[in-house]
Design a protein around this nucleic acid. Structure first.
Lengths: 216, 216
DNA sequence: CATGCCACTTTGTGATCACAAAAGTGGTGG
DNA sequence: CCACCACTTTTGTGATCACAAAGTGGCATG
């Protein structure tokens, strides 16, 4: 009978807490494609009832982070190659625009911050840590795009990242190279030079490089 | 005690029925920006309890069709001009790509179908029927984009339409012109000629024409 | 040994309720 | 006439339950 009542702090609502945590796990590749979940299982894990678990799941399904079978079973999506190509194309479209809008606002402090993040990306690659790589790589992109002052576009881009999360884990998991990301350096160089065409090309290349891994 | 039990037909689940109906009403401009709703009100309207009403609303909030205040109050969004510009830019990016992908697959039957729909668009404009105009206009675009065989991109485009629904109603509601949509004819002409640059320009122009109305 | 079948378990769905916070309402004092 | 306070109503949140359908495992039968 609702004996355990939580203070109604707007930032600690149960369903939102579950949503955010699950979202992070999916986006950053903590969970493999096709991984099944249950509402009761999620409820147990986060010590909540089925109701907030269901709301969190419903929201993630709406964002494409989870799929539901016709019988309502929940799992992370296993993307077809066609779907991956589409999502990569969407990333290219949206993120090139975001980078382009960020360019005139990208000052030295931002560029230095990107370099710092990029060092962490290189470190993750060197350690073959797929989860860290995905997380820091997305942080690199998000840091740049935040400067675009375009929240709706950034939200769209993050939705695409979310949909690709489990697949990126699987892709980068079987990745064997250890060289740091070359296109990130191109992005930084283009930002420093104020070179918009170069920036667009560098972002497009960086975003679609996963496709080349897929084809190999 | 769950006395009224509905047959568990996968297509008639309560929350999905509510979701789809609300989604249509919002996307096609049946409801004005800033319009408030309540879970119990929705439940009464659709003769369901709060649970499926909440799930439908949660999903629509995730898609940006509805907004929730910090206290959980629900209403359709009132978009700022910056947000409208962003959404129009997203439409341009995604829909130009969709049209471009549809072009090689656009045969005579499709073009004729587009002309039929366009006649209905013109009729709606002539009758100054904002809801019919939005509905048939989106049907025109959707019919074209379906040929692109890119479901993820189409879903993104529809999400943008959904977010703009109430605002489009407000915009077109104060629209006074009665001439049929010029850019639709350009789109059809470019399709017929297999002219990709022309098609991209025509779609971009059509999609961003609302902005000019906004500026006036 | 394979296969169909039946009982049992797991799981999502929707209704209902208690609760707290927010919004609305009316009256009183400045 | 307006600001403020107490009270009532409205509203979202989360827990719990009944139910049906889907999955699961074992057993008997061919």
């Amino acid at each position: 009978m609702n004996l355990i009542q939580r203070p109604a702090d707007a930032t600690s609502l149960a369903h939102d807490r579950v949503y955010r945590h699950l979202r992070g796990r999916i986006m950053y590749g903590d969970v493999a494609p096709g991984h099944a979940m249950t509402l009761r299982g999620i409820g147990r894990e986060y010590e909540v009832s089925m109701t907030p678990a269901r709301e969190a799941v419903r929201r993630l399904v709406a964002e494409g982070a989870l799929t539901m079978s016709t019988s309502g079973r929940i799992s992370t999506p296993e993307l077809s190659n066609e779907r991956i190509e589409e999502l990569a194309a969407l990333r290219a479209l949206i993120e090139v625009e975001l980078a382009s809008r960020a360019l005139p606002r990208a000052h030295m402090a931002l560029i230095e911050r990107l370099q710092t993040i990029n060092a962490r990306v290189a470190e993750a690659v060197a350690h073959r840590d797929a989860v860290s790589y995905i997380r820091t790589n997305l942080e690199f992109h998000r840091t740049l795009y935040l400067r675009a002052q375009a929240p709706a576009m950034l939200a769209m881009a993050e939705t695409v990242w979310l949909q690709m999360g489990p697949t990126m884990r699987a892709l980068y998991g079987r990745l064997r190279r250890t060289e740091p990301p070359q296109f990130h350096r191109l992005i930084i160089a283009a930002l420093r030079a104020g070179d918009e065409p170069g920036l667009r090309l560098a972002v497009r290349s960086d975003v679609t490089q996963g496709l080349r891994m897929l084809a190999s």
